[in-house]
């Protein structure tokens, strides 16, 4: 079973992973203080363009990942639109009560979750975990023992997927039947989690022993196979982000789409 996904590296892949991580985190926090849905709308168009054309992944992958994004947008916005509070009633039917306030609040909430989702995906699709950890060791001074533990854990994931498939077949052959409802869910979680955890814990222990047998952690000083420094791609990324934020701000003032400017 192979779950490797092929892609063409783009300039987004070449950005220093720690820098990318910090910039996006700062952006996340900044966005929490934005209360203008117009701004978010313009902001999102730029990120969508990057998501569609900048990751170097195949259309199939991009399309598949867009499905949960859409679901997040719809679910978070509709709950607020249908059930949120407000005074200017547009529509009322049973529990559903759409007001002007709740509508814009819903749109705003949906846009915000979508920005977060898109940015996270953009990061995940353009960052190799190994580079991220090498970079955090080099730029953010993360201790090697944590970085390599994470990398070893990531290596175990495809093995766990394989084991999960065998486990499913094995349980089927043993004629396992589940109860209905919540109890059945609990049984399922137990039947899958215990063997998978048992296998993984044992494997993790073995990997740890073999890592120490390879003289890991004897001394704290180490050289690195990959050197991750800063390039002009980082500057490009930062500048384009700033420029786009400014454009979004200007547009949201000049060409408003939603007739509200402050929603919270």
């Amino acid at each position: 079973m192979s779950i490797s996904i092929s892609y063409q590296p783009t300039w987004l892949h070449q950005i220093n992973p720690s820098f990318k991580l910090l910039t996006l985190t700062a952006l996340f926090i900044g966005l929490l203080f934005v209360h203008n849905p117009n701004f978010l709308l313009y902001m999102i168009t730029g990120i969508v363009v990057l998501y569609l054309f900048g990751t170097g992944h195949r259309w199939k992958v991009i399309g598949l990942l867009a499905i949960p994004l859409t679901i997040i947008f719809l679910s978070s916005s509709t709950t607020m639109i249908f059930f949120g509070e407000g005074e200017q009633t547009w529509f009322k039917f049973g529990l559903i009560h759409i007001t002007e306030e709740s509508f814009y609040r819903g749109i705003h909430l949906g846009l915000r979750s979508m920005v977060f989702g898109l940015l996270s995906l953009l990061f995940a699709l353009t960052t190799r975990p190994v580079y991220l950890f090498y970079s955090t060791m080099q730029q953010l001074k993360l201790k090697p023992k944590y970085a390599y533990s994470f990398m070893a854990a990531i290596r175990m994931l495809p093995i766990i997927v394989e084991e999960f498939q065998t486990l499913r077949q094995a349980l089927k052959v043993r004629g396992v039947q589940y109860s209905k409802g919540m109890k059945g869910m609990y049984e399922k979680v137990k039947l899958y989690a215990i063997p998978l955890l048992a296998q993984s814990i044992r494997r993790a222990h073995r990997i740890a022993v073999s890592m120490e047998a390879k003289q890991f952690s004897k001394n704290n000083k180490r050289t690195f196979y990959y050197h991750l420094g800063y390039t002009n791609k980082d500057l490009l990324f930062f500048l384009s982000l700033v420029v786009w934020l400014m454009i979004s701000y200007v547009c949201s003032n000049q060409f408003t789409v939603f007739p509200v400017e402050y929603v919270r």
Partner: peptide, 26 residues
Amino acid sequence: DPDAQFCMPYVDEEIAFVLENRNIPQ
């Protein structure tokens, strides 16, 4: 166990891990 003695996903990185432990210049 062939599946329980590597910590890196790629062949070259796995051997590099040992070389890094030994402080071999990049």
